[in-house]
Structure formats: structure tokens, C-alpha cells
Design a protein around this nucleic acid. Structure first.
Lengths: 213, 213
DNA sequence: GCCGAACCGTAACGTACGGTACGCATCTGC
DNA sequence: GCAGATGCGTACCGTACGTTACGGTTCGGC
């Protein structure tokens, strides 16, 4: 397991700096990892010198960009609600659907691509950051729901981690790797909804408490 | 979906050329995408001129390397056997275990990394090749088994593709993306066996024919 | 033994790009 | 208004690396 790679959201970024990072992010989505400092500078209408003063070097810029995007994705957790089978199902479907939307988004694909590339030659911990704000953040938000489901007698599992990973697999299946490898997977809103429902049903079939009288 | 990206295994590669590609592959595993032509030449004890004569340019070399590895992975299909629930379970577990071993291998990780990187800026179709010899090859080999299972009344599903993708998700879960992103996932032989068994059980729970009398 | 082809080792070339330096405009506090 | 700071635009430097060129060596055919 990688180290936590704590993200300090309030890294005291000025408005201008955020704008620059947004530009870098957009460029990253368009160009992939082969964006140049000059291109970023031009796109952000700033000088390269400023880039270097603010972010140190190229890797620093990439890091800041990824963290910046990560800090934006911070979503609110599902609030504790009256838990019955209906609301649990709805919650799970929502998680599944949200996750599918995320991993199929252009920016997620781009970010994961550069993180995967950089994970090869361990210059920085982009992989850790992406993982932390993707797969691990999802786990952290979903596990309480699973635990609550177990508490309420709706779910039955030994280990929340294992249950989560199974849910993760049922939802994602081959989608992420295919997208990362450039396959054009058809993922309209409708199919996402259907897939989320199917994954949830499967998950409940596997981990739903046996209500056998 | 990407085009088939047919692999012509017998691309008339001489012994020497294969040796060169093996060297390139080893280097790719060690160094990732940032291998240099000089490094390959040195490792393979050949001249750069030869490299260029044989493979055109850097991308050509990478392509040839990936295809070369792909051609080696061509595994025999499970032969038609007497199908009962026991042998079906064994087959599925074997597929799962093989697949986990593949995606956690150094060369698979390295190859997927470069393919993902290149998929960003569509210079070549490395992504298609890897996909074709990974996920799609697996489907092609597994689907007949699933169909046979249905024929034998052991499995119950509408669409073989959907069933396969669910199996794929149950087996792979978060393993591949975590490995690609540099997370050190613990995958000893024992855990692989356990995971394969668990995935198979889950799959059978979802798609096993209801033997309700 | 001789010729050409294939190939090795290495030197050389061109370029793209990361990183730095400098001139000028704009803004802020006084 | 003015001094200093901040930042834009751009020219510049150094280097890494893809690509090419070339001399020397081995080898098969005659």
C-alpha cells in the first residue's frame, strides 16, 4: 500500500494560480503527458518564469495540477439516513453511477493516464495521489454505508474491505482499463444507469442478508 | 470498439530479431517507456542502424516489441471436456487464477503502462494490441466455456458478453488499476488462489442455474 | 583469396524542450 | 509621481535523444 499522500486542499493557491492550473489541466486533457511548459504558459497567458517560480519544475506543475483537480472532486458523503432496503439500494446505485461517470470522464482518463505513465519511473507519487482520490476515497465514503447496512441487518459480510472490492469490481468491470487503453466504450447516461442498477442487484444478491424466514 | 488489430504471429522474424526484441522487452520492463534507442542497441548488442533498418523508428520498435510479447502469450484453449459443475468450477478458477497471474506480472504491468501512455496521443495502436491480447483474448477463450455451461444447464444468463464482463470484474476488481498506478498489491500464489476461488463462487452464485426442484 | 552484404560500434547532426535571464508593462503603497 | 515588486513575453542556453552517416569486421558465395 502506498502512503496516505495527504492532500492539503487549502495550499493557499491564489486565484491566478488556480486559473493557471485549470489551464494546465485542460491542456493535459487535450494533449496528454506530452504537454510542454511553453504550451502551458501560452495557454495560461503567463510566463514560463512564473511557472517555475510558482511550481518549481515540470513535475511540480504536474503534481500541483493533479492535486488541484483532486481537491475539486471532494464530494459530500452520503448523510446518515433512515436505512431500509430501498434507501440502501438507492445509495449503492448512486455510488455506482457516480463512479462510472467519473472514470469515464475525459479528465479522469487523462489524469489516470499521466499517473500510470509516471508510476513507471517513480519520479513522483502521482499514482498515489490519483489512487487516494479515486479508488481509496470511494472506499472511505462507501464503507460506512456498507457497515450501516450490516448494522441494519440488510447486508451480510465478513470484511468490509472485501465487500467493497467486490462492489468495485462489479461496477467497474473492464470499463476503466478499456478506456485507458483507448477503447471507445459506449457509456451514455442510460447505459450508466443500467449498469449501476445491475451492479447493485448483483452486489445485493451476493451480500444481501438472507431473509430466509 | 477498436479495430481487430490482427496479429500476424509469423511476421517472419529471424532468430536474431527475436533476441533483439526480447532485449527490448526486458529493458521496457526495467525502464518503462523512457528507454532510449541507444540503450536498446547496447542491451541487444546490435547497432542503432540495424534497429532502424529493421523497425523503422522508435515507435516501430515498440510496436514490434509489444506484438512479439503478445505472440508469446498465445495460450491453448481449454479443451472440450465432460462438463459437470465440478469441472466447470475448476475451469473458471483456472481462468481467474491465470488472469490474476498475468495482470500482476512485471511484463504485463510494463506493457500496459506504455500502451496506456501511448493511447493518450494516438500515434500508434499499442492500446488496441494490448487490449486484443489481454481482455479480448480472455473473452474469446472464456465465452465458449460459459456457453457450454449454459448448454449443460449449469449456467443461466442472457448475454455471454455481459456474463463475461461480470466475471472479469469479479476477478480483477481493483487489482489492475492499483498495480498500474504503482500500488504494491500483495499477490502471492496463495492469495491468487483464494481470490480465484472467491470470484468463481460469486460468479456461480450470480449465474449458476437455479437448481430449485 | 575476393566481393558484396549484413552488421557492429561510434561519432555526428538536428531538434525539441526544460530551465534561465532579461527587458518592459502594470500595479501598489507612499 | 515614484520605487519596488510582480508578472508577461521572449530570447537564450544546455542537454538528451531520435536519427543518420561512416569506418571496420565477419561471413557466405564464387
Amino acid at each position: 500500500m502506498l502512503q496516505p499522500a495527504e492532500i492539503d486542499t487549502s495550499e493557499t493557491l491564489t486565484e491566478r494560480q488556480q486559473a493557471v492550473l485549470d489551464a494546465a489541466l485542460r491542456l493535459l486533457v487535450e494533449e496528454g503527458d506530452n504537454l510542454t511548459m511553453t504550451a502551458v504558459a501560452r495557454r495560461a497567458s503567463c510566463s514560463k518564469e512564473t511557472l517555475y517560480k510558482w511550481f518549481g519544475d515540470r513535475d511540480g506543475l504536474l503534481n500541483a495540477t493533479v492535486q488541484w483537480q483532486a481537491s475539486k472532486v471532494r464530494v459530500a458523503s452520503v448523510d446518515r439516513e433512515r436505512l431500509d432496503i430501498g434507501s440502501l439500494t438507492a445509495s449503492l446505485e448512486r455510488f455506482a453511477s457516480d463512479w462510472l461517470k467519473v472514470i469515464s470522464s475525459d479528465t479522469s482518463i487523462a489524469l489516470n493516464r499521466v499517473a500510470v505513465s509516471h508510476a513507471g519511473s517513480g519520479k513522483d507519487d502521482l499514482g498515489a495521489i490519483v489512487l487516494q482520490n479515486g479508488r481509496f476515497a470511494l472506499a472511505k465514503r462507501l464503507k460506512p454505508v456498507l457497515e450501516a447496512g450490516r448494522q441494519a441487518g440488510l447486508l451480510d459480510f465478513e470484511d468490509a474491505e472485501t465487500a467493497f472490492r467486490t462492489f468495485f469490481g462489479l461496477v467497474g468491470r473492464d470499463v476503466q482499463i478499456r478506456l485507458l487503453l483507448g477503447d471507445r466504450v459506449e457509456l451514455t447516461g442510460a447505459t450508466i444507469g443500467g449498469d449501476a442498477a445491475r451492479a447493485t442487484q448483483h452486489f445485493l444478491a451476493l451480500f444481501g442478508a438472507k431473509t430466509g424466514s
